[in-house]
């Protein structure tokens, strides 16, 4: 017998977790954000239940401000794999014209956090997989793999259920739910190495390419459609950029890069001097902002 490799161990742990949820939770769903972590999650779900299809649907919370390439990738992926892809948008938010330019953090709350809660309530999901990793942010580093939420979807960091060995407690009361993070113990580097090893398809935005961008508050923002609001002194330039994380295009900073192959991306990641979430504009707002949003029900 041989010792399993680092990636094999992480893969086995994630698959074990997914099967536990499928076996014990009443109505699970897998959150699908279209990003690279979601691509890995989807890939793991396909492997975990093979030859059976994953025994739960996938859910994308569409803020209507995602990159166009992300939406195309989502639809193509769902069709290619024959999986059930639910798409939910906060219609009141759209009606009220909530957008990332004028509404700041209220936008994230209404179009992401509230939309997610509405979707989970509407479908009655009791368990939701997310792709969060503990290496991303300090409050995530302390969250359990099975993260209990009360009927208001709130997380109580001071009273987390102990989580021992592989013995996950999935017991909840009506109205309560569990968020599950099978990638908790993966690092960004593990994700990229796994994508290479398994040849997982990811959104082309991760690869460097000439794209129309503006420089704003130290971030490189891509002009993905004509809804982009430009300041007087802002000029659209064509630059070779790529994205390390994906979200709503006006809130996602790119990096100038020549990395247009997977190996080049991994090479660049290994030498990264800026940790991943720096490119998400919202995390800068206040110290502890991620923890506060999680308590309010954000993933």
């Amino acid at each position: 017998m041989r010792e399993l490799t680092h990636l094999e161990q992480l893969e086995a742990e994630a698959i074990y977790i997914m099967r536990e949820v499928a076996a014990e939770c009443e109505k699970p769903v897998m959150l699908y954000s279209i990003g690279k972590d979601s691509s890995v999650m989807l890939h793991l779900a396909l492997k975990a239940f093979y030859p059976e299809k994953p025994p739960f649907p996938f859910l994308h919370i569409d803020t209507t401000w995602k990159f166009q390439e992300m939406i195309a990738f989502r639809d193509h992926t769902a069709k290619r794999l024959g999986i059930e892809m639910l798409v939910y948008t906060n219609k009141e938010g759209v009606r009220d014209g909530i957008n990332p330019f004028d509404h700041g953090s209220a936008y994230t709350d209404i179009m992401k956090t509230q939309a997610l809660k509405q979707a989970l309530d509407q479908y009655g999901f009791t368990a939701a997989f997310g792709g969060g990793r503990r290496d991303e942010e300090k409050s995530r580093a302390k969250e359990r793999i099975f993260s209990f939420r009360n009927a208001q979807h709130a997380w109580d960091p001071k009273n987390q259920r102990p989580e021992m060995w592989k013995l996950y407690n999935t017991k909840i009361r009506k109205g309560e739910s569990i968020r599950i993070f099978p990638l908790s113990n993966w690092t960004e580097k593990d994700i990229w190495q796994y994508i290479r090893q398994e040849m997982i398809e990811i959104v082309p935005l991760y690869y460097a390419k000439e794209r129309p961008v503006v420089y704003r508050d130290g971030n490189i923002i891509m002009v993905d459609d004509d809804r982009m609001q430009l300041g007087h002194d802002e000029k659209v330039e064509w630059k070779k950029v790529r994205f390390r994380t994906l979200g709503c295009y006006p809130l996602t900073g790119g990096v100038e890069s020549e990395a247009d192959t997977l190996d080049a991306i991994i090479e660049e990641t290994l030498q990264a001097i800026t940790s991943e979430r720096t490119s998400r504009v919202i995390d800068h707002e206040a110290a502890g902002s991620m923890e506060r949003r999680k308590r309010e029900g954000y993933f």
Binding site: R134, D135, S139, A141, K142, P157, N185, G288, E291
Partner: peptide, 19 residues
């Protein structure tokens, strides 16, 4: 010490994982 309550109280409440 990642949690707000921990930084305020200067103690570690919960396990933090580092990679």
């Amino acid at each position: 010490d990642g949690l707000m309550a921990e930084r305020e109280q200067g103690i570690t409440i919960d396990v933090a994982y580092r990679y």
